[in-house]
């Protein structure tokens, strides 16, 4: 299909990009890897009059070590995230989740920031970002602000970003030495999650000292499975403890019903996958 006509600019700095977005108003759209935006344009589900191509913003690529946290540029591709040694060491959950995204072609073009800004509830990087307490750095006409993941995801495909704001970086607190696992359930390999569970745990002296659990596609936004986390912390890292904690997986979730899964089945999957994710994370 052919998108409707639009103007196109390719700024080289964040300032220029923000100004272009502000000038374009509601009808302007940023484009990162284009892996979600272009299909939408081609199907004419979105008809922006201006597309602001971010691919020239080299300042937004790469992973930086900020001491206690990592700073990941929004334009860092999935492929780069997967292979980044800092991410692998300090935020392994992100690597593991990114491994499951789409196919190699898409991972070479799609970006970390684009995925988060797109806020598809079935997208695989939202729940890890939430579980890791990531902080979104957003740049607008009035400067930058920081939004924690828990407040960034507002609804289906909706974030806290204003139309003239860009996501520039994501700060991810280091969880060095934690076990991690991303358990994704889908029907064909390159597809989005029907349900997935992101788990990171710190085991100390046979006990679960810390646990983070995030759920993908269990509601309009990613869900933090606080009940599971509470139930795990302080427990011995045993199968029984994990199985029992996992029964609380769907607490507070609002799972959708669609052709792949109805709400009941999703809730069931959340429990089974949580059990598997935590078990794998504990032994990772």
């Amino acid at each position: 299909m052919i998108p409707a006509a639009f103007d196109y600019v390719a700024p080289t700095t964040v300032d220029e990009a923000v100004r272009a977005l502000a000038a374009g108003g509601e009808d302007a759209k940023a484009m990162a890897g284009g892996q979600s935006l272009i299909p939408v344009l081609r199907m004419r589900l979105a008809v922006p009059t201006l597309v602001v191509d971010l691919s020239g913003l080299t300042e937004l690529t790469g992973v930086h070590d900020d001491g206690d946290s990592l700073r990941i540029g929004a334009m860092t591709t999935h492929y780069e995230v997967q292979r980044d040694p800092l991410v692998r060491e300090h935020a392994r959950l992100l690597c593991l989740a990114t491994d499951t995204v789409a196919d190699p072609q898409v991972r070479h073009r799609g970006t970390f920031g684009g995925s988060l800004a797109h806020a598809d509830p079935a997208g695989d990087l939202l729940a890890p970002a939430l579980a890791l307490d990531a902080v979104m750095v957003c740049a607008g006409p009035n400067g930058t602000r920081e939004v924690p993941a828990a407040r960034f995801f507002v609804d289906y495909f909706t974030t806290a970003l204003a139309p003239d704001e860009l996501l520039t970086h994501v700060k991810v607190p280091k969880l060095t030495g934690w076990g991690a696992h991303y358990e994704k359930f889908n029907r064909v390999a390159q597809a989005w999650s029907i349900v997935a569970v992101a788990a990171a745990v710190r085991v100390s002296e046979g006990k679960i000292a810390d646990a983070r659990v995030g759920l993908t596609n269990m509601g309009p936004t990613p869900v933090r499975a606080r009940g599971v986390e509470e139930a795990l912390v302080g427990q011995p890292a045993t199968a029984e403890a994990i199985t029992s904690a996992a029964t609380r997986a769907a607490e507070g979730a609002d799972p959708p019903s669609d052709g792949n899964a109805d709400a009941e089945y999703r809730s069931h999957l959340a429990r089974v996958l949580t059990e598997r994710a935590v078990t794998a994370a504990v032994s990772a």
Partner: peptide
């Protein structure tokens, strides 16, 4: 089995919610 397309993921979802806004 529900006949609605994927609520998230896929393009049906974007369709159903009126665009990737």
């Amino acid at each position: 089995v529900p006949t609605t397309p994927g609520a998230g993921g896929g393009l049906g979802s974007i369709d159903a919610r009126g665009g990737a806004e």
